[in-house]
Design a binder for these strands. Structure first.
Lengths: 338, 338
DNA sequence: GCTATTTACTTAAACGGTTAAGTAAATTAT
DNA sequence: ATAATTTACTTAACCGTTTAAGTAAATAGC
């Protein structure tokens, strides 16, 4: 079945395509009577304008992209919800692109955006991302770009983060307060600004408490099986940590499983705090102490700023940092529950 | 900075835009020497073709859509990975659209697809979806459509599911084998075919074991707070179930939390089996017995079929059902662990 | 009653590619 | 040596909209 086009409506009503187009956009140049006829026919034939034709002509697509490492992380899935809540109000489409923590995918996706496919971009970098030419290239094309969480500090644009230094500090201090002497920080990136901020906070807390020789900044990769063996090795060592700050949700599962396997009990033998928004934190064995970020609100905030840029004719996204607080929620993985 | 267009390249090299276009697509009509000049200039100026112009002319976008209820469910996030693995091989873009279990969003999204925005669609229905006109409309436009998991039986196209009847049966039989006498099934939809298949399997198992008066098919909605109170009420009743089959991952968290609150112990007071792909099933308190679907493979299978349709000139997606087996993984929520 | 303005359109040129059809020059065939 | 074919392009139409510019008729202004 062939699609209905403006031209077909025009022929049917003996009008020009211009008249139809204007009638459908409720232009004052068209008489009320004609508008009615056009709208009636359009809805009767279920006319749906071709998305590409319109976007090509207007050089705007009413579409934004969200570029994320993955979706199997509660932070990102909540952030998406925040973004979509705003986009829906604004009548924009939201396209979700996943990098799977893969730098070359991120490059390819951003390059594609230079084709004008989307009007604006919200993104969180890959853990691998250590160079920024692809981001610069996109930014140079004047496509509004807002970072959230895994921001790119090198680009002058708006960025939404949480208080990562403070969170790293808070998590570490909490473990120290619980009696930990040897605290490890599990990270998935040596490049990401937020990882480094969390690491800085962790280091500062150790320093302020005069703790030395802690096995600092243990780096995990993107392969779960490898991470598991790695954590296994760390926890098998007789110099094993008695506290862990997991900067990423998914590492926590591995830690729990390793402890189960090695018959180490949490929180007696090991205490752990994880950056996480998992609703199941409460029902883990034991329940998980978390640093919980305001994921939904961060998504919303990022979207709001992006739309400010999109709706202004002379847009300028300045180099702004918005920091939102995250929360330490103490549960059974650091404090023995009744 | 203005974008580079074919026209600009043409002017620069004193060729027609047609020549440039053909050179870039490596046409035999263009001399090797000219091709080289064109390609050299194009890559030097970082020429990126306008996505809308090409798609408009070719009436193909090399883009497929994945329409999902949500992404905060391990089944869907894994299925996406399977889909993207195939799409990447084929050089297609994947756009993810979320319905948030909202029927009118689903309608709006499918309607939009009639604009030719995507070449094909993979989808899982909303829990609310009880009428199918919007799906018929899309299907009538000859846009290839493949369902996975939450399929629409009323539409003649390819469908990928798991053995939902058998899974419902298996889960129920397992609870019966563990001694349950009063088994509830928690569902989020009275409309979805897969919900009904699971329910049928559950009923059959009860029947085969001569169990009557089980509180059949308890319906939960999309609001977590409401679900929580609802489950709370059920579990507070003195006629409360001693076994639960949760047909959806997210309901499990509520059940665990309610039991914690009411000081009911799992599996002594209540045994529960949940449809879930959560990697954290193992570290819950207690670990969770699951029916686990081959989510990644289902995504792959759905994508493979869709691409068969997309790549054939005279495509026909027949009314086919592909059923893949899911697996019962017995853990601590039904059997007391050592 | 004649000019100025408004109304309600139409025409045609974009947007940035792709492609069918045409063509001049070079090559091959006979 | 001439016709047939191949090579390497160009021209122009087209995809389906939007929109600037043009226009004829109706209305308003004085």
């Amino acid at each position: 079945m062939d699609n209905i086009t403006l031209k077909m409506l025009a022929k049917e009503l003996n009008l020009s395509t211009a008249a139809i187009s204007k009638a459908l956009r409720d232009s004052h140049e068209i008489s009320t009577h004609t508008k009615q006829r056009v709208q009636e026919l359009a809805s009767r034939l279920n006319y749906i304008p071709n998305a590409y034709a319109g976007s090509l002509r207007r050089r705007k697509s009413k579409t934004i992209a969200v570029v994320l490492p993955e979706v199997a992380d509660s932070f990102f899935s909540l952030a998406i919800n925040g973004i979509e809540a705003i986009a829906e109000q604004k009548g924009y489409h939201v396209l979700i692109y996943l990098t799977h923590e893969n730098f070359s995918r991120e490059q390819a996706i951003l390059k594609d955006f230079q084709s004008g496919r989307v009007d604006g971009v919200l993104m969180s970098l890959t853990a691998e991302t250590a160079s920024y030419q692809h981001v610069c290239d996109l930014h140079a094309k004047d496509i509004p770009l807002v970072f959230f969480d895994r921001v790119c500090e090198e680009i002058n644009t708006a960025k939404i983060t949480t208080d990562d230094f403070e969170s790293g500090y808070k998590a570490t201090q909490h473990l120290i307060d619980c009696g930990c002497k040897k605290i490890a920080l599990l990270s998935i990136s040596n490049y990401l600004a937020i990882s480094n901020r969390r690491l800085d906070g962790y280091r500062q807390a150790l320093k302020d408490n005069n703790i030395k020789n802690s096995p600092i900044n243990i780096y995990c990769g993107n392969d779960n099986a490898v991470n598991y063996r790695f954590i296994q090795r760390i926890m098998s060592d007789k110099e094993r940590p008695d506290g862990i700050v997991a900067t990423v949700e998914k590492l926590t599962t591995d830690v729990y499983l390793v402890c189960k396997e090695l018959q180490l009990s949490i929180p007696q033998d090991l205490k752990i705090v994880s950056f996480s928004n998992l609703s199941s934190a409460d029902i883990l064995n034991p329940s998980l102490t978390t640093i919980t970020q305001p994921a939904f609100e961060m998504g919303k905030a990022a979207a709001v700023i992006l739309f400010k840029a999109l709706e202004k004719k002379s847009f300028t996204l300045r180099d702004e940092n918005y920091t939102m607080p995250s929360e330490l929620i103490i549960r059974g993985s650091t404090v023995l529950q009744k």
